[in-house]
Amino acid sequence: MADPIIRLSGIVKTYGEGPTAFQALKGIDLDIMPGDFIAVMGASGSGKSTTMNILGCLDVPTRGQYLFRGHRVEVLTRDQRALLRRKYFGFVFQGFNLLSRTSALENVELPLVYRGDPKAERHDAAMAALDKVGLKDWWDHTPAELSGGQQQRVAIARAIVTRPQVLLADEPTGNLDSERSVEIMQLLSDLNRNSGITVLMVTHEPDMAEFAHTLVHFKDGLVERIEANPKPLGLAGSDA
């Protein structure tokens, strides 16, 4: 069996200090295989987002070890983590987090700008990513001129434009109606299967979790249980 792309061992995250300190993660152990599609579930406050942020190098654990492709992450500097994010990770947030007054194309291009890609390449890659999420014709619209579902698809395009190895999505459908949600899930499922991207997704909705291959349940800052989904949704849909 292949090595895990991500290995968390004994990850603890404590917010605050002294008597008001709060332990949000109490020792997470988790292995993630490349190409997996994981749905993270659990009650509110169980530490799902905290875990996702640590996985995506947006935050650092208080204790424990995080191995990404066999390298220790928790010892890296801020800038090294930024470069790691730039190279390997794509993020999709519940609140979209697009730059306002900025066209879909420019939003999608931004990670490539920081990566230093030449203008023409940047443009082509961004258009290709928009095409993948079905928004090719909307490239010049600003977030204010797009629906929630469309904004989330722009955010996904931005997350995948750098061809990341891992796509992290924290409640990507949390602000969308069920029809739009299914579209987004179908998109993530396609990306996972066709582009081989490892997808981690937090969701509260069991219907959305049905698209994943693996379900990870959180409870009170710990991984409560991991189960495989024998018949993920989405596969049939896209094959047809």
Binding site: D79, L83, R85, N97, R158
Partner: peptide, 16 residues
């Protein structure tokens, strides 16, 4: 500040 957060999240180094 949120914009700065977005830029950092998608891979900008603080210096940039």
């Amino acid at each position: 500040t949120r914009e700065i957060g977005i830029r950092l999240a998608i891979g900008a180094v603080a210096r940039e």
